[in-house]
Amino acid sequence: MTLLELKEGDTAVISRVSGGKGISARMAGLGLHAGKKIRVVRAAPFRGPLLIEDISSGARAMIGRGIASHVEILDEKR
């Protein structure tokens, strides 16, 4: 299951970031490593990015849908 399949308000744990070194390095830079518990705060209109919150730190980042499809997660629902 990937990040893309989550809905607003859902929480999940990142299990793996695929899709090349650039993407995983950028995700890691923002603190979004495997094992991190995240929440989808909002999905932007017009198939825009997802606003993700790192639950432990409260930090937020936006991730485009193309990249979100490379982020594998373990679903936790709400």
Partner: peptide, 10 residues
């Protein structure tokens, strides 16, 4: 373009 990854500060 693979798309956006960007920090959203408070």
């Amino acid at each position: 373009s693979p798309g956006i990854i960007m920090d959203v500060p408070p």
